[in-house]
Amino acid sequence: MLKKRIIPCLDIKDGRTVKGINFVDIKDAGDPIELAKRYVEQGADELVFLDITATIENRKTLIELVSRIAAEINIPFTVGGGINSVDDVRSLIKAGADKVSVNSSAVKRPELIKELAQEFGSQCVVVAIDTKYENGEWVVFVHGGRTATPLKTIDWAKEVESLGAGEILLTSMNNDGTKSGFALDITNQVSEAVNIPLIASGGAGTKQHFKAVFEQTGATGGLAASIFHFGEIPIPELKSYLRTQKIPIR
């Protein structure tokens, strides 16, 4: 049986791991390679590395980091942040990334998704969608959640699927950093609207939150950062709890 995936996310700034609480405050949570290896040993199913500074100057630093990650870890990992072109992706894949995630650049120019799918295959194209519930509807935000777009979340999810995305990483900004649980309603709506795998993100604070997202939505993965970084919920403990709750877990 296909298992639900537990995915720690490592936000990267200048080669170090950080986590934005509600996308603003930042705490230092260590060396990305050490943290990644620890997660692999603990049974993480995939890893996501998000370069939150993503400037042209530190691109080389990121590529070097990706090469080191690829050499050291033996589970799939996704790299995101500041990806604007087929060339950006080529250099990341060449360094050993399994998947890349695009967000603002895909909203700005949706054809990018199609180009990436044609060049590298849908399986390595993750579209990250930051969404916020505002004035009675879920809409898409870009630029790290700072800028609203006119796009409705469900419409955008369907469009990225039709353009060739292989997976959606959905983050609810209302929930992110709150530790009050995943946004079950929009997660399930997106899952029902598309036929590609969906990773739920934003709001995980307890083991029960993962149970809820796997039982009440079609998400095939659950992503979190700070609760793993600071050891609030050790991954082995989370996975063993989910197994007792009859959730299919590796």
């Binding site: 049986m1 296909l2 298992k3 199913d45 399986q123 036929n195 590609i196 795998p197 095939t220 993965g221």
Partner: peptide
Amino acid sequence: PPVEKVPNMGWNN
């Protein structure tokens, strides 16, 4: 067939 999510992505026994 599109009765489940495609691609099949993840860990399976």
